[in-house]
Amino acid sequence: MGDYIMAAVLSPARPAEDKARDEARQPEEIVAFAGVQRGDTIAEMAPGGGYYTRILSQTVGPEGKVYALMPAFYANREGGLDTINAIAEQYGNVEVVVVEGYDAMSLPEQVDLVWTTENYHDFANGDIGVTNAWAFDALKPGGIYFVEDHAAPGTGLAATSTLHRIDPAAVREQVAAAGFTLEAESDVLRNPADPHTAGPREFGGVTDKFAFRFRKPG
């Protein structure tokens, strides 16, 4: 693990409420597993409140860049972009891009890594084939597509809109169909005590999660 990753996680610029979530999310392990490097350009899909945006920004450093791809429905809410815009102002290498959907996004350059955490199950409720094809085209040859989400083994796509989880096998199949190769998977966020019968908000403990690193052929 690069020292720059740990420095990003330990940064005093991160808010206390983010740091309180670190034990459950293991960001230093996840960022290292995803293959984030100093100087990378990253497209972060649905960054929410910016938990990972801050870490990724400081990990790639001033020579890198993070495109924070925010869904339009956030932009249409009063104050919906306030937090992510404040992060972009604080960190000079973050650019907010408002998108109608994760299927026809346009970026000014190809990126080294497309990143999504705990959102893929939502994308799967739309045209996931188009979304994954966009991720493939957005990446440079040899680029990484990183996917982490709440697991619902053996359910296919049945739990995506009800329990806000997805079957890891379905993700592997869908992403492979877009031309990616599964390079590695991590069990750092696995929780065998999770019964997979409730949504993340209803489940009292830390959910069972999977993390995949896919590679676009070089």
Rank of each mutant, 00 (worst) to 15 (best):
E100P: 05
G199K: 11
L107R: 10
A72H: 09
P168A: 12
N125Q: 15
R190N: 11
V97F: 05
L81N: 06
E109F: 06
Y102N: 08
N132M: 09
M105W: 01
G79T: 01
G79D: 03
V130A: 15
Y67L: 05
D18R: 12
D122P: 01
I84D: 01
R21V: 03
T160N: 12
P141F: 10
A152V: 05
L107S: 04
P12E: 12
A211K: 01
G142Q: 05
Y51Q: 08
D149T: 07
T131L: 13
N85E: 15
I30M: 15
A75T: 04
N85F: 07
P195C: 11
T59R: 02
R215A: 14
T162E: 10
A176M: 08
T207Y: 03
L56N: 00
D112S: 13
E118D: 12
A170N: 04
H121F: 10
F210T: 02
G49E: 11
R215L: 12
D103V: 12
E185F: 03
Q174L: 13
T207L: 05
G126H: 14
A193G: 04
A104K: 14
E63G: 11
D149N: 09
A88I: 07
R54S: 13
L139Y: 11
A20N: 13
A34C: 10
F33W: 07
V94R: 10
G205F: 08
V111Y: 03
G218I: 08
Q37I: 02
T155S: 13
G80Y: 03
D167K: 09
R77Q: 14
R213L: 10
A88Q: 10
E63V: 13
F180P: 03
Y145C: 12
F180A: 01
A75G: 14
P47I: 02
G143E: 04
R77T: 11
N76I: 00
P71L: 12
G143Y: 04
T207C: 15
A88F: 03
D40M: 15
A193D: 15
D167G: 07
Y67K: 02
A198H: 09
A13E: 13
I5T: 10
A46Y: 09
G92M: 09
D149C: 04
Y52H: 10
D103T: 14
